[in-house]
């Protein structure tokens, strides 16, 4: 498996660390209430198909990446910098 880091180019998966769904970037307001926080902390979909995942280029450039990946075909559709994804959302 290879991930095309926006900084470093295509790299072997052993340089990266996986950290679950990219939902983790959408931190709720402290006052959003228990249901919203419960969803944010604990509930994740497990789709057969495209997912958005957080990967850390740990032995590379130290960028956090949002990788859009298909769990069925293993195709990687997009690799974005978490900082850019977050910046665009704000």
């Amino acid at each position: 498996m290879r991930i095309n880091c926006p900084h470093c180019g295509p790299r072997d998966r052993r340089e990266f660390t996986y950290q679950g769904d990219a939902l983790a970037l959408d931190r709720p307001d402290p006052e959003a209430g228990p249901d919203v926080w419960n969803d944010y902390i604990h509930n994740r979909d497990n789709p057969a198909g495209p997912t958005r995942e957080l990967w850390y280029h740990e032995t590379g450039c130290a960028a956090w990446l949002v990788v859009t990946r298909d769990t069925v075909t293993h195709d990687i559709h997009a690799v974005e910098l978490a900082s850019a994804v977050k910046g665009a959302g704000k």
Binding site: T17, Y56, A62, A63, L81, S83, K86, G87
Partner: peptide, 14 residues
């Protein structure tokens, strides 16, 4: 370190 980078890049890029 990983956590701080995630906070810096992904939660508080501001």
């Amino acid at each position: 370190m990983r956590h701080l980078e995630l906070v810096r890049q992904g939660l508080r890029p501001d």
